[in-house]
Amino acid sequence: MSAKNWPLWEIFVRSKNGLEHRHCGSLHAADSDMALENARDVYTRRNEGVSIWVVESKHITASNPENNGELFEPAQDKVYRHPTFYDLPDEVKHM
């Protein structure tokens, strides 16, 4: 029975050209065409978008928050990746 239920799709909407597509939610649809049509009705009823992406949820691989330490902490002590790390004489106004 459950195999016949409409799969879940993640919806991404670009609100206007020049901006990125942003995740706005999910919905169920039989296929990608229907997912696009449903996303139009569910997420863009008030001109919220000019472009829609749909991705079947099962195709998304997400990082696990339990691994956040090893994934993201190494960036925390690398202050030399930021411009403020470097000393400049006051005379240099813009750099």
């Binding site: 016949k4 239920n5 409409w6 039989a30 296929d31 229907m34």
Partner: peptide, 13 residues
Amino acid sequence: VRDAAMAHAEKKR
């Protein structure tokens, strides 16, 4: 309707 939509999607695929 839901079943027909699934069958149609499968046929297209």
